[in-house]
Amino acid sequence: MNSLTFIISVVALFSISNGFPATLFPNPEFQDFPIPDTVDELDPSTVVQLFIEFEREYNKEYMSPLDQAKARSIFQFNVENIIRLNQQYANTSLRFGINYYTDFSDLEFKEKVANLHVDSVSQDSQIGESAPNLENIPASFDWRDRENTVGGVSNQGYCGCSWGFTVSSVIQSAFSIQNSKFFIPSEQQLCDCAQGGNSGCSGGSVRDGFEYVKQNGIVLEENYQKHIEKHQEMYCVQQKDSIHVSNYKFIQPATSSVIQKTLLSNGPIAVGFKVSNSFRHYKSGIFSLNDCEISDNFLGWHSVTIVGYGTENEQDFWIAKNSWSPSFGEEGFFRISRNIDLCQIESKMPMFVQL
């Protein structure tokens, strides 16, 4: 029995025997905002109505009427951009829409969301095997199809801690695959405590996040909940009943085929990539725009978790889990072109863990 067959058999077995729900955090039904087809149709009354619905849908609150007016102006600018993008790519499967961050300017988005510290392979980096020896590679694969392996999508909100959410997501899946149990690790613990070269909500490194868990462990979310006040040292000391990783490794060579095989043999993978102005408005389809390489459109780096891959209409893609709430993209996930290293999603820093 090869490695892939073994993993699929094990996951299928615990899915049937334990009967856990697919996710302990069901995605809420976010409203699909109907927006005009052209900018000319976006009259002032339509903007006001859309913004009211947006505020209600995402529980937006502003410090003052002036801040609210500023947010509405940014919202209108972004909706106009969304309309133009949908017009430009009308003949493709790619669609753009309103999400949690539509009231963010590009500068705010860069400072508060897309501020990942990019990891580089160094002499002391642990390197994964060049290509796991797998046979009969399936044409498509999605860890979400294996019950209890990929948890619900979180919302990092105004906190630039994508690195912590990605580390938590990868460890959660690795633990579930190996132990046939659904485990919800604390993202907040990572964002608060995994300092080192990290800066919490001001950005951080996936590698430093994994190193923190290797040294200190990560606890259940119920024992270290979101929005807990920071800088309380009692919460950042090593605790009992925490999960540790024995190692974390960069995938080298960082090619599409090696990432694909590692995904199958080890589980979901952490990656980083360049975020562009168009990607922040992604709604559905296969994202294939290379505008991240244009300086005016580049917003910063971001980390996500690759959970699968496939092909649609002869276009290869990765399936990735984001941390921008289930309102983003395809219920919090997105598809992005595969085999072309789009926005360096394949080459820069793919990593996996070993428990």
Score class of each variant (00 low, 15 high):
344 Q>E: 13
298 F>V: 08
271 V>E: 03
353 V>Y: 00
158 Y>L: 11
75 F>V: 13
333 F>V: 05
238 Q>G: 00
272 G>D: 02
36 P>E: 11
330 E>P: 05
347 S>L: 01
5 T>H: 06
282 Y>V: 10
248 Y>R: 07
33 F>L: 10
347 S>A: 04
50 L>H: 01
72 R>F: 06
341 D>Y: 01
38 T>K: 14
98 I>Q: 07
243 I>M: 15
201 C>D: 02
257 S>V: 02
264 L>P: 01
3 S>G: 06
326 P>T: 13
22 A>K: 14
156 Q>N: 08
201 C>F: 01
207 R>P: 01
289 L>A: 10
267 G>L: 03
196 G>V: 04
240 K>T: 11
179 N>M: 09
349 M>I: 05
204 G>P: 03
158 Y>K: 08
277 N>S: 15
353 V>K: 01
310 G>I: 09
243 I>G: 08
170 V>S: 00
157 G>C: 03
27 N>L: 08
92 T>V: 12
201 C>S: 04
156 Q>F: 01
80 E>F: 04
51 F>Y: 15
319 I>H: 04
105 S>P: 05
55 E>P: 04
73 S>M: 11
166 T>M: 05
281 H>S: 13
220 L>K: 13
204 G>K: 03
234 M>T: 14
302 H>E: 07
219 V>Q: 12
122 S>Q: 12
260 Q>I: 03
309 Y>F: 15
138 P>C: 12
62 Y>A: 05
259 I>S: 00
19 G>S: 12
252 Q>M: 10
28 P>I: 06
293 E>L: 14
82 I>T: 08
125 S>I: 03
184 I>P: 01
16 I>Y: 14
307 V>C: 04
275 V>R: 08
8 I>S: 14
18 N>D: 09
286 I>G: 04
208 D>R: 11
8 I>K: 15
11 V>Y: 00
42 L>V: 06
167 V>Y: 03
352 F>K: 00
10 V>R: 13
248 Y>E: 02
284 S>L: 09
110 K>W: 06
35 I>V: 13
143 W>K: 02
240 K>A: 14
246 S>K: 14
299 L>E: 05
101 Y>A: 09
298 F>E: 09
345 I>M: 06
338 R>E: 03
286 I>R: 05
86 N>Y: 05
77 F>R: 13
202 S>E: 12
344 Q>I: 10
354 Q>V: 08
71 A>V: 08
127 I>H: 02
185 P>I: 11
154 S>K: 15
242 S>D: 02
314 E>P: 00
306 I>C: 01
